[in-house]
Amino acid sequence: MNLPSISSNVRIVSFLVSVFTGAFFILTLPATSMGLLTAVNLPYAARWDNAEQRSKQTKSITQDMTKGYWHSRETRDKYCIRFGENENEHNWGITECFDKNAFEKKQTDVFQLTRQTGTLTLTGKLYQAEGDGTYEFVANEAFLTYLTEQGITSRDENFMFHLYLADMQKQYIAFLKTHYTQIEGNRLMELAIHEVSQKKYQEYIGLFEKYSGKKPSIQEVIEAKIHGIDQAYVEEIQANGYTGLDMKKMMEAKIHGVNADFINSLKQEGFTNLSMQEVLSAKIHGVDPSYIGQMRKLGFTNLTLEKLSEAKIHGVNASYIHDLETAGFSNLPINKLIEAKIHGVNADFISEAKSKGYNLGTIGDYISLKIHGMARNTGRE
């Protein structure tokens, strides 16, 4: 995708609906099975966001996005334009930044930008710090015919508008056709929405072929782009000893925030030669230096990372351990702590049991009591 006159760093789609009280919420449907959630009710200026926040919920819009209202804000060398259904910001919106000289002035307060996919016309005050007005996009029928000839179709009425914003060109389509017999229109639209340029796509092909031994599907490329997989991240993971991972595992690591800093933080705590699955488990369950240090201060100095993860999963932490200490149970082994937490044995339960006459000797007794129940009135099971 050639983008000579468009900045692709700050595009965002937000869908807002009124919910009973009149508050508005952004509706986000997953771009993939691992979708993204966009923040709610951000001020307008804060919504000039990164395109990674845009997912294929765009296709769920039933309104015609090819005409409506625009509102622009000037940056140093761009005009960032938010396109929306109406002047009210509490509706869907899609923002794109254009070079200041991108639009041709046709007449007073009428500006146009023509690309292979069609022509966008802005009516209103554009060349100022803030501007607004109305817009209309007219698709290029010749380009639409070309897509049909290539077997690329979509029922989405905003299909061509999204291709236009990404400046989709025949050159990119021809490139894709050399790699795929069939290209779904909706997949092409997702490439546009997520700003996967032709150059970037070629890089992803290289990454997948090198690390997974296969050419990626278009969906896999989209997912890699959404989750920020690139050569730099692959090299970062490899530099920390994980040289045999395929792209699927690297993508999983990236999704969960595994990076060099986290891997090194575990090494500094004495956990070396970990598999990526062990690192992932620690990251997913929040076993970080803070939690490890907390448990070691309580005397658990020789726990494996697996056992720490198990304890963290079940909520065994300093607060819970101190809670049991107030009930008279100190220096419990980690397995008993985990078992007690799983069954909901805490200071309150022990206090209640004692008030009913259950003055038991071990935490195991109280665990058994919790499992089997106690007679609340008689003080006996």
Rank of each mutant, 00 (worst) to 15 (best):
L245H: 07
G244L: 01
F262Y: 15
G244F: 04
F262C: 11
A224Y: 01
I255E: 07
K248D: 14
N259Y: 05
N240K: 11
G244C: 01
I222Q: 14
K215G: 02
E236S: 02
L245Y: 10
P216W: 01
Q231N: 11
E223V: 15
L245Q: 12
K214Y: 01
A253N: 05
I218F: 01
A253G: 11
F262T: 15
Q238G: 05
E252L: 13
N240L: 03
I226V: 07
G213N: 01
M247V: 14
L245D: 07
S217A: 01
I218E: 01
H256W: 10
D230G: 07
G244H: 11
A253F: 12
E252N: 14
Y233T: 03
I222P: 01
A224L: 02
Y242C: 10
E220L: 02
A253L: 15
K225R: 12
A260K: 15
G244E: 14
I263M: 15
G228V: 09
I226K: 09
L245M: 07
V234M: 09
I263Y: 15
Y242P: 08
M251R: 12
K225P: 00
Q238E: 13
V258M: 09
K254A: 05
E252H: 12
M251F: 10
M247E: 03
Y233E: 04
E236M: 05
V234R: 03
Q231K: 13
F262L: 13
I255Q: 02
H256R: 10
D261F: 13
D230V: 10
I237V: 09
K225Q: 13
A232N: 14
I229N: 06
K254T: 06
E236Q: 12
